[in-house]
C-alpha cells in the first residue's frame, strides 16, 4: 500500500519476501536494509517476457527493490499518482510507471488487438506505439505525469475524448480508438491542433494529466 507524501513523492513499504519494481534511479531515500538491483529482464516473467518487451519497446529499465524498511520514490520532478488495483487491469505506458508492487502481474499488450487496424493507427498517430504495459491483480502502482493527474470516469452511455498527449493511463473494461477530425483546414496547415483524440468507451476510469507534454 503506497502513501502519497506530497504531489511529487510516494512512499512504499518494503516488506521481506515482497518485491517492488521501480524505474531505475527513481529512489529518493530509504530507511532500513533495502537493496536495489537492476532488473535485467525489465520486469516480471522469463526470457520470453523480456524479449516481448524489447520488441514492443516497452522495456523501460526497472530495478527490483527488496529488503525490509521503506523507500520513497519520485522522478524528474514529475507529479506522481498512486493507483490502487483490486483485481482489475491498469493500462499504462512503461515509461510512466514509477513503482509497482510485485503482487501485480505485468505484461505487454498489443494495442492492435483492441480495435484491429484502428488500434494500430491509434498507436502510430498518438505516438504511444503499438504496445502498452498492463498491470493486473491486487496491489499499488504509482504513475508519473507532467502536471497534476485527474480521474475521469467512463460509463457506457458517456464516452470520453482525451488528447493523446494528456492521456496517462486507464483501467477497467475500456475500449480505446482514435477519433479524427481532419478536414480541409488540416490539409492546408490551418488545423485546430486537436485533430486526433483518444476516444474511450466502456466501464472504467481514465487518468489525464494537466499538460500536453509527453514524458
Amino acid at each position: 500500500m503506497f502513501t502519497q507524501i506530497n504531489s511529487k513523492m510516494v512512499e512504499a513499504p518494503v516488506i521481506p519476501g515482497q518485491r517492488l519494481f521501480s524505474q531505475r534511479g527513481a529512489m529518493l531515500a530509504y530507511r532500513g536494509q533495502v537493496t536495489f538491483t537492476p532488473n535485467i529482464m525489465g520486469g516480471q516473467g522469463g526470457i520470453g517476457s523480456m524479449l516481448g518487451r524489447r520488441i514492443a519497446n516497452e522495456d523501460t529499465p526497472l530495478m527490483t527493490v527488496e529488503g525490509s524498511g521503506s523507500a520513497m520514490f519520485g522522478h524528474g520532478g514529475h507529479h506522481t499518482h498512486v493507483i490502487q488495483l483490486t483485481g482489475d487491469t491498469l493500462y499504462v505506458e512503461a515509461d510512466r510507471l514509477l513503482v509497482f508492487e510485485g503482487s501485480l502481474q505485468q505484461s505487454t499488450m498489443f494495442m492492435g488487438s483492441q480495435g484491429g487496424l484502428r488500434g494500430i493507427i491509434r498507436g502510430q498517430a498518438t505516438g504511444q506505439g503499438l504496445f502498452t504495459t498492463t498491470l493486473t491483480g491486487h496491489g499499488s502502482a504509482a504513475v508519473l505525469a507532467h502536471g497534476g493527474v485527474f480521474e475521469i470516469p467512463i460509463t457506457p452511455d458517456r464516452p470520453i475524448h482525451v488528447d493523446p498527449q494528456a492521456y496517462v493511463a486507464h483501467r477497467g473494461e475500456v475500449r480505446s480508438k482514435v477519433s479524427t477530425a481532419i478536414g480541409w483546414r488540416e490539409a492546408v496547415g490551418r488545423g485546430s491542433g486537436e485533430a486526433f483524440q483518444l476516444e474511450l468507451t466502456g466501464n472504467g476510469t481514465v487518468f489525464v494529466q494537466a499538460s500536453e507534454e509527453k514524458l
Partner: peptide, 24 residues
C-alpha cells in the same frame, strides 16, 4: 549488461536532527 540501478550511491544520515527532501 544489465546496467546500473542508479542507486549505488547515497548520502547516509545518522544522529538526531532533520533531513529535508525534495522530489528530484
Amino acid at each position: 549488461i544489465g546496467g546500473a540501478s542508479g542507486e549505488e550511491h547515497q548520502y547516509e544520515f545518522v544522529g538526531a536532527g532533520q533531513v529535508l527532501l525534495q522530489s528530484t
